[in-house]
Design a protein around this nucleic acid. Structure first.
Lengths: 321, 321
DNA sequence: TGTTGCACTGGGACGCGTTTCAGCCTGTAG
DNA sequence: CTACAGGCTGAAACGCGTCCCAGTGCAACA
């Protein structure tokens, strides 16, 4: 594989001149430029990306930290980030943590060792790591860590409040809660908003109506089975549409009517929520991804003050409440 | 930021020795190793990834070419690939093409310029590009391009045949077809298998029952609206569960009974198919991703002969046929 | 005691572009 | 005709590890 020196030699010029042509700098005579381009074509020359990265000290690559790419929230986020990367000629490096603290910590290495120019945090279970990360390179979070790093995130607390208010208006007296990862930032915020709401309302909650680490349709079905062994609450707030769908599916199979016997709400408004007419929360996740990527890229470039911001959810009222 | 020379100087040794410690090579005295480690810690040294990549000539990164990360098939694929990357200490670079030929072509650059060690093709609309790609670096495809590059893929033709056989057995006389991207490899294979089956059966198809470029739940709803203006076929084969779900949803709203008035089949067995009890095709996509990544990594490492293989689909019979 | 062998260490070339700086040349203004 | 500006070009340092090769020194063996 030819390198820049080969080109220079064959074209009878110096490496500098070749480099100028490569980067579209001025001050290269028409004739030499032509010769150089000819030689490059003839030798099928292609500059070595790693050499460029090393010498420029940047890679035009940004990393994204997510638990799993398969999760509906995260793949929408990735899609938005990916769009911006493409528009701005950047590359997307995906780091799957599977919620593993060691992997989260290891991800910092990419930033430190200059393999990525910046990092977008999709979710992190150890926010204290951000403290170190920000000293290593630009970081933007898609959860609320605005006291540490610039953050763009949804108002999950408000979303929970909207859902609770809604089911209460529809007459619920008792309510359950089903979360995904209770230790994630989102999980904590949701839990807190839930507890907070109950304090100022007559709505009742009991520990038997609480579940977490539910991620899939099947988890929802299983949970329905468990709930059937006890008294059902009037409503249940579920942190994920697929889980809500599983719950509804199993309940209906068992002859429980939704929403008459139990009202169910989901989260994210994925296709399944539309198909089953699930009352849920819609959030412009792809847009969040875009904003985060734009924030990171502009920030990395011009070092301007970077702000955090809170995006508002919308309540989609359908047939399950 | 300290570099390896700084460490060497401070520790009173040569760069070579520091490098040996870094890479866990033998032949370093306990004492020097200790001193070096101390200095590294004190200066918060971290090796520069780009320098390592450059000097080693490899990056431990593999690229994946997909139209969009958001598509259910591709994010499952990414998940499988991601798992293997993690296990083998590799990194995942995602390249979204949005089916754009120019972007597909540009992706080759990563391989050529050594930013990735190998490339997994999720889908490509210009298979002829593979011809060049394989000369540039290791490539594995997840579609049928086995005449050009090692390929791991599903037997989409057989899946279509199974579905047609199934609806025919259930009494269908006329059948429709709804595809996604008709120009993709998968689209072509499906179309071909469909046409082929009809030739040897009494099942009827008419152009009014054909549609393509349907990707979402909403596309399915819209298609249902169109079909309602003409005579319905007895069954329709849909290339995507979400579209099938949209179709079912709209039909039911319009008082059309599924499967009595029209049988509907999906593809992929995503959660929505389980929720709506859609007869569909299940394929182990995550496993496909894993296999592809393993193939690529072992191939890149030991240059062994790499084989192509065909994975079998399974028919999930539910309530919509 | 001479020799062989092995553990340990350093020097320096190498991978490949980028960038700074100095210098040359030509054209134009005074 | 001199002087200065500005276009063009090359040498060489730089970014940062890796790795081959050539030792050096000490221990064991003949």
């Amino acid at each position: 594989m030819a390198n820049i020196s080969d080109i220079a030699k064959q074209a009878g010029v110096s490496k500098s001149t070749v480099s100028r042509v490569l980067n579209g700098h001025k001050h290269v005579s028409k004739e030499k430029r032509r010769i150089i381009l000819d030689v490059m074509e003839r030798l099928e020359y292609s500059p070595n990306g790693n050499a460029i990265n090393l010498s420029r000290g940047k890679t035009n690559t940004i990393g994204v930290l997510v638990p799993r790419v398969g999760h509906p929230f995260f793949h929408q986020l990735l899609e938005g980030i990916g769009q911006v990367c493409m528009e701005r000629n950047h590359t997307l490096l995906v780091i799957q943590t599977e919620h593993d603290p060691a992997k989260e910590e290891a991800s910092m290495q990419y930033l430190r060792d200059k393999r990525i120019d910046g990092l977008i945090i999709g979710a992190i279970s150890q926010p204290q790591l951000l403290e170190t990360m920000r000293t290593v390179g630009p970081v933007v979070a898609c959860e609320d860590h605005q006291d540490i790093v610039p953050s763009l995130f949804f108002n999950h607390g408000k979303a929970i409040t909207m859902l609770l208010q809604h089911v209460e208006e529809r007459g619920a007296k008792t309510v359950g809660l089903c979360l995904g990862n209770p230790d994630s930032g989102v999980g904590r915020v949701r839990r807190e908003a839930f507890d907070q709401y109950l304090k100022t309302s007559t709505l009742c909650h009991g520990i038997q109506w609480y579940a977490d680490r539910c991620y899939s349709f099947e988890d929802g079905q299983a949970l329905a089975g468990q709930l059937l062994t006890i008294d059902l609450p009037d409503a249940i707030i579920v942190g994920n549409d697929e889980v809500a769908a599983g719950l509804i599916d199993q309940f209906r199979k068992d002859g429980i009517r939704v929403p008459e016997d139990i009202a169910i709400t989901g989260f994210d408004d994925v296709p399944i929520a539309r198909a089953l007419e699930i009352t849920t929360i819609r959030q412009p996740v792809v847009m969040l991804g875009r904003l985060a990527a734009e924030q990171l890229l502009s920030d990395a470039l011009n070092q301007s003050e970077s702000a955090s911001s809170l995006l508002e959810p919308s309540l989609m009222i359908r047939q399950t409440t």
